[in-house]
């Protein structure tokens, strides 16, 4: 599903990733750990296709419409409501039965009551939950989750645990986290960046 050879990325003169070889097969869960600034986010952005490598190469055998990418930011418009944001993404990803899918996701992540609120008024945790809705909306085959637990309270953390557990085998996952205890039992591969 994902293969990288000699992968490296620099930002200006700063080298964030160097000489990384990687092979993730379909249905695996890759756990990426490492301290801040070790290149976890960069690696996920490279996998998502947002960044291009400056050295080596990376290949992902999926069109970008079947990848779900959770970033630090929610990647949603602050001035729009939760529902309007998901509706826009639903249209762009050509999600069948858009209304029902969005409704079910909002329900599941506990945002149904606040669906008509502007995202700008959301707390950090609510934004993260909305971002998870956005990522799962089109039923991606590859999920790239950058710090999925950040900002979430205990009840919301179990929601993420559920997502990881239900994906087991049917979906490929790459999870970057600096608190990997939750993910470790499910991981088929671990990569520690320094």
């Amino acid at each position: 599903m994902i293969s990288a050879r000699g992968l490296g990325r620099r930002f200006g003169s700063k080298r964030v990733l160097r000489d990384l070889d990687l092979e993730v097969r379909s249905g695996e869960l890759l756990l990426v750990t490492g301290p801040n600034g070790s290149g976890k986010s960069t690696l996920l952005a490279l996998m998502a296709g947002l960044l291009a490598p400056t050295e080596g190469e990376i290949e992902v055998d999926l069109p970008r419409g079947r990848i779900g990418y959770l970033a630090h930011e929610a990647l949603v418009y602050k001035e729009l409501t939760a529902l309007e944001n998901l509706d826009l993404y639903g249209r762009l990803y050509h999600v069948p039965e858009r209304r029902e899918t969005i409704g079910a996701l909002l329900e599941r992540f506990g945002l149904w009551e606040s669906r008509h609120q502007r995202v700008g008024s959301f707390s950090r945790g609510m934004q993260q939950r909305l971002a998870l809705c956005r990522v799962l909306l089109h039923g991606p085959e590859l999920l790239l989750l950058d710090e999925p637990y950040s900002g979430l309270d205990a009840s919301a953390r179990t929601l993420v645990d559920d997502v990881l557990a239900e994906s087991g085998g049917s979906r490929t996952l790459v999870v970057a986290s600096h608190e990997p205890e939750h993910v470790r039992p499910l991981a088929t591969q671990a990569l520690a960046l320094a």
Binding site: L50, G65, A71, L75, K78, L92, R134
Partner: peptide, 12 residues
């Protein structure tokens, strides 16, 4: 704000 452009760029 919120890097929304990246979100749009990733859409198919």
């Amino acid at each position: 704000e919120q890097r929304v452009l990246d979100g749009l760029v990733l859409a198919p």
